[in-house]
């Protein structure tokens, strides 16, 4: 059995600007730039003072407490690494607990939790997923056909429907959250629409660089929301502070000019501004888009692809017998990616 160690914790390695903290001053020190220590200029004495080691991190834990393992990919906040921690944080516990209790064919199964000899080692034994969608899209030679896209989306919606039935809501990307709404519904967050859009367009939809940019892109694609189509819109916290650009048109049809009416309807349903009107997973599965030609292909008939994930990292690739492999799972991406059992 091949296992990947540890609980995944996301370390956000932010590229700190070197000069934000004035480094020690003397010329000699600057030359030997390697072990520069941060220092502060005292207001009282006008002299430089060293920051004691114990005060350096404040209440945050020093990153050294985590053992970095390997790079997983890039997330919203920067490069995501898998790391090991000696404690069991609530987020990991939550996921272990949730995944251990969920049994659905479209959700990656956490078979059990195993432990190593020393107390800082936890192993999550998960069902083997050959691919994760994110790296697959980036690496596949030719994009998915529409029938294959439908197959993937159906699996996604089935997984989501199951989650919602079990009162688990996936919080990812939805305008009401970007705009500060405190209430969340089981209207699927827009990420499902984004995945469908990305699969159909062969390129990321709404690729925002920041929250503001993200909102701008949404408005650009879907038009500016108002109280008519989204009751309560003008009372959202963030709307008090920012003004949205006026853009009266919905550009979905324009962007997906080749898509059938049923396909556009589904996209629009998924991108509905008012979360109460937005499609639920159940609604999506009923969509006529899945009933018209080309019909979704059978999951068994999905093409197989080489294991990019494993070839890129230095791990040894699993043999046929090692079917039960751990799959590193991540808090935001877990639901999004691991649902895909291709």
């Amino acid at each position: 059995m091949l296992v990947i160690e540890g609980i995944c914790i996301f370390l956000l390695i932010l590229k700190a600007k070197k000069n934000q903290l004035k480094m020690s001053k003397s010329q000699a020190d600057e030359d030997s730039a390697v072990d520069e220590k941060p220092a502060l200029l005292s207001f009282l004495t006008g002299k430089w003072m060293d920051i004691p080691e114990s005060k350096l991190f404040g209440k945050c834990r020093p990153v050294l407490e985590f053992k970095k393992e390997h790079r997983l990919g890039e997330g919203t906040f920067g490069v995501v690494y898998k790391a090991k921690d000696t404690r069991v944080p609530i987020s990991s516990l939550r996921e272990i607990n949730i995944l251990l209790n969920l049994r659905h064919e479209n959700i990656v199964q956490l078979k059990e939790v195993a432990v190593g000899k020393s107390l800082d080692r936890l192993f999550l034994v998960m069902e083997y997923c050959e691919q994760d969608l994110a790296s697959l899209i980036d690496n596949m030679p030719s994009p998915f056909t529409e029938a294959q896209v439908k197959c993937i989306m159906q699996q996604l919606f089935r997984g989501l429907r199951f989650l919602h039935e079990n009162f688990i809501v996936h919080r990812y990307r939805a305008p009401e959250l970007l705009l500060g709404s405190k209430i969340q519904t089981t209207g699927i967050d827009m990420s499902a629409g984004c995945i469908l859009g990305e699969l159909l367009a062969h390129q990321p939809l709404l690729k925002g660089r920041s929250e503001i940019h993200q909102i701008e892109l949404i408005v650009q694609l879907l038009g500016t929301p108002n109280d008519m189509i989204w009751p309560g819109f003008s009372e959202l916290p963030a709307i008090q502070k920012i003004t949205l650009k006026k853009q009266p048109y919905n550009n979905l049809r324009h962007k997906f000019s080749w898509l059938s009416d049923a396909g556009i309807r589904l996209l629009n349903f998924l991108f509905m501004y008012d979360p109460n009107k937005r499609a639920t997973a159940e609604d999506c599965l009923d969509s006529s888009y899945f009933k018209e030609q080309p019909l979704p292909c059978d999951p068994e008939l999905m093409p197989s692809h080489p294991h990019h994930r494993l070839t890129r990292s230095k791990q040894h690739s699993p043999t046929e017998e090692e079917k039960s492999v751990l799959y590193s799972y991540t808090s935001v991406h877990a639901v999004k990616l691991s649902i895909f059992k291709l």
Binding site: L93, N97, L100, E112, V113, L119
Partner: peptide, 17 residues
Amino acid sequence: VMTLERILLQTIKFDLQ
């Protein structure tokens, strides 16, 4: 308590629900 947490978790086999 922190150390015991790990022992507790593995004792109850992570069956938390």
